[in-house]
Computed example of a mutant assay.
Amino acid sequence: MSDEPDEAPELNVPVGMFEDIEDLKAQLAQLTTLVKTLTGGDDAGQGEASADDEAAADEEAEEEDEWQYPPFILLLDPPAYDDELRALIEWVEGVLVPGYLAEPSADARWCHLWFEHTVAIARLHAVWLAWQELTDPASCGYTGPSTWHRDHLDPALRELRGSTGPFAGCTKGEHQIDHRMPALVPSAWSLEQG
């Protein structure tokens, strides 16, 4: 017995289809040439990716994932820190202060030089990051602003403006940044062993 069929099947394929296939082959060849030209070309076969290409693609994907969300401000080094602080100052002075901070009092302090208080920078930056996420209906729906007020803004303002917060030593006319610094504590590590 033979493995081949007795009769070849009739293929009723329109002539236009063959032309379309040939056009697709030509377009694929052009695109392949263009890709090789733009990427500097490589010796990998058509449709095959070299190990270097895969490693570069993985590295690029990791970099994209790494910067998908803004980093916490205290983890940044200059000039990224300075840029982030400028943007934070714009938001605090343009949105937070006029919209949420009434006249300071003994029970609700505020320092006009808040950006010189590291604790204030850290807390306000966290509130700002949450605000960016939670005020966009596309990402969090219409309940985002309520969640932002309840979970982020209100607790942060209680901590910042409270009697033991970073502005505790600041009054309306006086700014004091070193009031929160603890006194130096002798350390066993710094004492000379005899």
Rank of each mutant, 00 (worst) to 15 (best):
D3C: 04
D23E: 15
P79F: 02
A80S: 01
D53T: 11
G194E: 13
G40R: 02
A61D: 06
H175K: 02
H152P: 02
D23F: 14
G99Y: 12
L160R: 01
G141C: 07
G45W: 04
S190Y: 09
V95L: 07
A120E: 10
F115W: 15
D52N: 06
G169P: 02
C170M: 00
H125W: 15
Q68R: 05
G141F: 10
H112R: 07
T32W: 14
E192G: 11
Q27N: 05
W114C: 10
A138T: 14
H112K: 09
G40S: 05
R123E: 12
D77N: 05
S50Q: 12
E59S: 09
W114T: 07
F18M: 12
D43P: 01
P182G: 05
H117G: 04
T143F: 11
M1C: 14
G141Y: 08
V119T: 08
G194T: 10
V15S: 11
W189F: 13
H117S: 03
C111T: 08
W67H: 10
H149M: 09
K25E: 15
V95T: 12
T143Y: 11
R180G: 04
L134M: 11
P78M: 00
G165D: 02
E93Q: 11
F72P: 01
I73F: 00
L101H: 03
H112I: 11
F167H: 01
E10G: 10
L153I: 07
P78D: 09
W131H: 15
A29Q: 10
L160H: 03
L129C: 12
P9W: 13
R123K: 03
Y142M: 11
G94Y: 07
A106L: 11
D151Y: 02
P104R: 03
T164F: 03
L24I: 09
E63K: 08
S105G: 15
D65R: 10
E59A: 15
G141D: 08
Q193C: 11
L28W: 04
G47C: 05
L191N: 09
R161L: 00
E60P: 02
A44D: 13
Q27E: 10
P71K: 01
V92A: 06
C170W: 00
W110L: 08
E22L: 13
E84G: 00
L184I: 10
H149A: 01
E133R: 15
G41P: 07
A188T: 11
W110I: 04
G94F: 08
A183W: 15
V185C: 09
G41Y: 05
G169K: 01
K36D: 15
E103F: 13
P98Q: 06
D20L: 13
I121L: 14
L153V: 02
P137T: 04
G47N: 08
P79R: 00
R161T: 04
D6V: 10
D3L: 14
P145K: 04
A49L: 14
P98A: 07
G45C: 03
A188S: 10
L38A: 12
V15Y: 14
G169N: 01
Q46E: 15
P166V: 01
C140V: 11
P5A: 12
W189A: 10
P98V: 06
L113H: 13
G99V: 06
I177C: 04
I121E: 10
G47D: 04
L31H: 02
L75H: 06
L76H: 00
R109I: 06
H125Q: 11
D43R: 07
P14G: 12
E7L: 05
